[in-house]
Write a protein that binds this DNA or RNA. Structure first.
Lengths: 341, 341
DNA sequence: GAAAGTTCCTGAATCGATTCAGGCTGATTT
DNA sequence: AAATCAGCCTGAATCGATTCAGGAACTTTC
C-alpha cells in the first residue's frame, strides 16, 4: 500500500543507523546529559529518520515504571466524575501519564474486573472512586507495588491516601440551609446505602436536624442508583401521596437525582418549586444552573479533586514508604432558585 | 495484612509450584484444551495460591496483542461523548479490553500527544473523534499495525472506517422543523468551523432553507468552542441587538451551546422561549430534557455509536486487510417545548 | 513385535529497552 | 613518564510470557 516501515524500528535499528551502541541510544533517551552532544544529535536524527517510537512494553518489563494510571469511576455519566477525571488528566499530561479508564456503574463485579486489568497492566497506580469496601483489594495491589488513592471518599482506617470532600459537613450545610429558609419536613433522597457518600450526607442531614432549635423531620426516600431516572421515579412516588404527606423540602444525594426529582415534580405544574417544595442537590454539576428551576447545590471542587489525587498518587508511587494522608476539601453552598423563592 | 508475596509471582514460580514447565503453564493460560486435565488443575491451583497475575508487558513484548484500545475524545465534558465512551466500554468489557482515555478539548497539540502515547503503548487500536485533519497521523499508526476508526465523523476519503451520524441530514431536519413551525429568521450558532460536524450541520441547515418554499434567512453566529459558556456568551451578544434584529429561531450545533443560549436568553424573562425565539440543539444529551425549557434536539444513538465503533475496530485489528467501511446512523428529531409553544 | 500415531510435556530462544561493569581516550596531576 | 581521573561509550544480562522443535510415554495398526 503506501510507504512507512511495515515493521517498527527498534532501538537496535536506531543504534545501527546512528553508528552507536544500543546503550548509548538508551542514554540519549533517558539521560541525555551523560552523552556527548555529537551522539545526541546523531541519535536524534536516526530516530527522526526511522520514525522510531519507544516500546513501552519492553520498557515496563525491564523493571521500568509504567506511564499509565488506572482510574475506576463510580459513574462515568455523572458530570461530577467527568470533571474529576478531567482534573486527573490535566495533571497527568504534565507528567506524561495517560489514564486507563474504567466505569463501574455502581457494580462490584465491574470494579473487580477493572482492578484485575489494571494489575495485569502494571499501572503506575490506581485512582478509585470505590463503590463498596475494597481495602482488601487495594492491599493486594499495594503488595504488588501499585499505589492507590481513594477519590471522593474518605479512607476510614487511614491505610490509604484519599482526596475527598467532607460529605457529612456538606449534608449538614445543605439541611441547615433548608431549615434556615423555613423548611421542617425534609426528605433525603438517595441510595443505595452501600455508597459511603450517601450515608455520610444523610448523617450530616440528621445532625443538622438535631441541632435545630425547632423540630425537624428527616424522612428517607431510597433510590436504587444515583441517576436522573431514579430521581424522576422517586419524584413520581412522592406525587402519589396525599398532599398533606408531602415533604416541604428535598435533599438529594447528588445533582442527577435532584434534576430527576425536579423534572418529575414540576411537570404540568403539579408542584411549585420552591414555593411548595424546595430542592437542593450535591456536586453542583454544570447543568444544575441550567435546570428548569436553577438548582441549589453543594459544590465540590471536582477538578481540583482529580488533580490532587493524581499528584498524590504519583508521589506515593515514587516513594512507597510514604505515609497515607487524607485530603479533605470543604463543600460550598450554592444557593439558586430551587431553594429560595 | 495477609499472605501475599511482596514480589509478584511470575510464570516460572507457578510452574515450579505446580511441578510443570513454564510452557505448560502458558498453555493452560492460552489453550487449556491441549493440556491434560490434571495439569490444568495443578496449574490453576498454583495460580490461585500464589495470586499470580499475568504480566501484560511481557506478553505484549513477545509479539502478542495488546488488550487496550485508545480513545481520543474531542470534549470529555460533553455527555454525548461520555455516552459514546460508555458504549465502547460496554463492548470492550465483553472482549476483555480496557480503554486508554484521552480528552483533547478541541486542541491539536493534545490530539498529537495522545496519539504518540497510544503508539508507545502499542494499543490494539485507536478510536478517535478527531478535531482537524488527522489522516496523515492515522496512516502512520496503520503502518505500525494499529487500526483506527473515526467516531462521530465521516471519513471523507474512505481510507478509514468510521461510525457517525449523518450531520448534514440532521442539520436539515432541525431547520426543516423550525421552518415547519413558522420560523423564518434562523441563526446557526456553532464553531469553530474546523470541526467537521459544525460545517456539516450548517450545510444541512442551508439546504433546508433553500428547499423551503418561503424565503428563509440563515445567519451564522460563530463560537470559539462548543460549551455552555460559549453558548451563554453568544446569547448575551444576541441580547445586545435592537429587538427588530433578533432571529426568531436558533439552531445550536450541539446541546451544550443550546443550553447556554437558553440560560442567557430567558434570564429575567428577557426573552420568551419558544414564543419569541425557538431553540433546537443537537445530540439530545440527557440534560436537554431537564432544561429550564425542555430542549428540542437531534438525537444521536450515542452508545450505539461507541459500541459499533469498538466492534469494527477489533475486527479491523484482527484482519488488517479488511476494507474500510463507513457506518452512518440517522439522527432523530426530538421535539420538546423549546420549539413548540 | 515393529512401525506409526497420539497425547502431553519440556526448555531454550525470542521480543526490545534498560542497566551496569568494564574499557578506551585524552587531559591533568605528581 | 607514570598515575590518576573524567568523560564517554560498549555490549551482555535481564525482565516474563510465548512459541515451537524435539522428545517421552503410551496406543493403535499391520
Amino acid at each position: 500500500m503506501k510507504g512507512g516501515a511495515p515493521v517498527p524500528a527498534s532501538i537496535r535499528d536506531v543504534a545501527q543507523r546512528a553508528g552507536v551502541s544500543v546503550g548509548t541510544v538508551s542514554n540519549v533517551l533517558n539521560r541525555p546529559d551523560e552523552v556527548s552532544a555529537d551522539s545526541v544529535d546523531r541519535v536524534n536524527r536516526a530516530i527522526e529518520e526511522l520514525g522510531y517510537v519507544r516500546n513501552d512494553a519492553a520498557r515496563k518489563l525491564r523493571g521500568g515504571v509504567s506511564s499509565t494510571v488506572g482510574f475506576v469511576v463510580l459513574d462515568g455519566q455523572n458530570p461530577f466524575y467527568t470533571d474529576v477525571v478531567r482534573g486527573a488528566e490535566d495533571e497527568g499530561t504534565r507528567h506524561n501519564i495517560a489514564i486507563l479508564y474504567g466505569n463501574t456503574d455502581e457494580d462490584h463485579a465491574r470494579e473487580k474486573v477493572y482492578l484485575d486489568l489494571f494489575e495485569e497492566q502494571q499501572v503506575r497506580g490506581v485512582l478509585i472512586a470505590p463503590y463498596g469496601d475494597i481495602t482488601a483489594r487495594l492491599q493486594r495491589l499495594r503488595a504488588r507495588g501499585i499505589a492507590a488513592v481513594l477519590v471522593d471518599r474518605f479512607s476510614g482506617d487511614g491505610r490509604f491516601s484519599s482526596v475527598s470532600v467532607d460529605s457529612v459537613r456538606g449534608g449538614r450545610m445543605a439541611v441547615e440551609h433548608l431549615i434556615d429558609t423555613g423548611r421542617r419536613r425534609i426528605a433525603f433522597v438517595g441510595g443505595p446505602f452501600d455508597i459511603r457518600q450517601v450515608n455520610d450526607r444523610l448523617a450530616g442531614a440528621r445532625v443538622a436536624a438535631e441541632n435545630a432549635n425547632t423540630p425537624v423531620e428527616i424522612e428517607v426516600i431510597a433510590t436504587r442508583a444515583m441517576t436522573v431516572e431514579e430521581g424522576a421515579a422517586a419524584g413520581a412516588r412522592i406525587l402519589t401521596r396525599p398532599r398533606r404527606d408531602w415533604p416541604d423540602a428535598l435533599f438529594a444525594a447528588n445533582d442527577l437525582l435532584a434534576l430527576g426529582l425536579l423534572q418529575s415534580l414540576i411537570v404540568d405544574g403539579r408542584m411549585l418549586v420552591p414555593q411548595e417544595i424546595a430542592i437542593i442537590g450535591f456536586d453542583d454539576i454544570p447543568f444544575a444552573a441550567a435546570a428548569a428551576v436553577p438548582l441549589s447545590s453543594m459544590r465540590q471542587p471536582s477538578r481540583m479533586i482529580g488533580r490532587t489525587a493524581l499528584r498524590i498518587l504519583l508521589e506515593e508511587a515514587a516513594d512507597p514508604e510514604s505515609i497515607a494522608r487524607q485530603t479533605v476539601f470543604q463543600p460550598e453552598l450554592i444557593v439558586r432558585r430551587s431553594t429560595s423563592g
